[in-house]
Design a protein around this nucleic acid. Sequence first.
RNA 1: GAUCCCGUAGCUCAACUGGAUAGAGCAUCUGCCUUCUAAGCAGAGGGUUGCAGGUUCAAGUCCUGCCGGGAUCGCCA
Length: 581
Amino acid sequence: MNIFNELRASIHRVVHSVFPNVDEALLSRITVEPPRDASHGDMATNAAMILSKAVGKPPRTVAEALLDGFKKLPIITKVEIAGPGFINLTLKPEAFKSVLAHALQTGPEKFGDGTIGRGHKVNVEYVSANPTGPLTVGHARGAIFGDAVANLMAKAGYAVQKEYYTNDAGKQVEVLTDSVILRIREAAGENIGEIPQGCYPGEYLKDVAKAYLEKHKTWDDRKTVRDFAIEYLMNEIKIDLGELGVRHDIFISEAAILASGAVEKAMQQLTSLGLIYEGVLEAPKGKTPEDWEPREQTLFKSTDFGDDVDRPMKKSDGSTTYFANDIAHYYHMHKMGFDTLINVVGADHGGYVKRAKAAVKAITQGRATLDLPLVSIVTVTDNGQPVKMSKRAGTFITLRDMLDRVGAGVMRFIMLTREAGQTLEFDYAKVTEQSKDNPYFYVQYAHARCCSVLKHAREMFGDISDASLAKTDLSPLERPEEMALIKLISTWPRVVEQAALAEEPHRVAYFTQDVAAAFHGWWNRGRDDATLRFLIEGNKPLSMARIALVRGVALTIASSLNVIGVKPLDELRSDVEMEAA
RNA sequence: GAUCCCGUAGCUCAACUGGAUAGAGCAUCUGCCUUCUAAGCAGAGGGUUGCAGGUUCAAGUCCUGCCGGGAUCGCCA
């Protein structure tokens, strides 16, 4: 139930009846949104300004013409023309209250569910870290972001698949194999001296070696070592992700893609489209690599699709480049029925975006689109001081370190309080502080307060199940604080839609804070003004209506936390770990 | 040299993909609160949105050119 969309449809109907000649394209530019300034009413539409040119009249005149039609809409009580030609609409309070009733009926799981996705299949690929070591906090941010985007799109009505693409082929796993063999020899008593340059120095590989020796006697077969190491490390990765609450639907292996001949098929497809040729690339200008020499190689004509230079498909040793393999992978996903592909990558992949998008466009002949949201780095501090890196892992702070320190809930929430493209400072002291300055705590506190009120309410009035609250008469709710909350709650379905379209889960985190802030504000008013308390003895109708609203706040917070992947807490006590999950 | 990301209050960040007077929190200042709804409350000041042009009814948002920070630049993914 999304009153914004409903009202938008009504307004489009009115516009169409007044100006029958207006075409669909123009109509689609007409928006209905809540104005920033609440004194401008509940909703504002730009219809008159959009239509002005096509109709050939100034905006305010167009607005006049639309006025009567808007006034006749049943949920509208007031229509005003304002500013350059905005039409401000005031809605009946019942319109918003019906959303609250609907929320109580549907519950936290379903409230806010949208239909814009129309069951369209979307593949979201994220994390996809190489199985060469433990996940870092950087991976954690990508994992959390990707997971939230996937949840968000699923809630907006898309059929979402969460994918982990395992880069288990290529040079890095060979380096891994060398490094593990070294550690195995070390574990077997050999003196290996310093870890040579180019090998992974991390001590976690000692564990791999030890586990290997428990199962195998020799290590002269590289494939056995490699397969063992990959499986071992992938398993570790899955354990970490599991504790973070991230569970992928599907793991696709690069080695399997290669073995299946998918790369050859993709190459054939591109060749038949006339997009593969043998040629020589120019050296990059400015900074020429020292060992640069012109070389003829197999190139993909990505410049036809918006890229800056054509890209090589084969390495000098004849094997395919990672880019060629990725194209095969994307093509594979497309053939599995996904024509919206989202691939969450680190900000260091910025230079990769154009060519990847070009490739998908080319090989699917425009039938599929690829989005590559870039996730920036995380700097970890404790009280402003840089946090030491884990020795075990080598040079990174691991996801595990952070998980042990603050828990999954804090990580998931805090990492979504910043736009993905912005670097994020994550301060251990700040994010675990129990004060209103910590957004995680602030939101959980609001939810816990709601639960506390509901507990008292149950003692006072008995049955306050969602089913019975959904039938409660909400007409006693008329204070500004109450209406503000009701209106805020009713925007949740719209937030889901907008955030999903923009692929920006941070908006959900902000929304959650807005709801919490409004609720805390209402609560605080009750300290000074006893008539604003939730449970008023001797006034059951008002109390019940307020209980319904409190429950509505709680389930809206729960619903939005659900998208973020955070478990809402029913109570906070200082002697209890904030992280209950 | 090229490409991409970023630049908003003293600080950390928002701003509903072009809407009205650019908003929160922290910090600062001024009041209030000895309560049972602990982890405070209410209010105030604070801005040429890096700079300069352009597009239009309307620009933090789109285009062009600069300035500054970061990332990347054939055989790592």
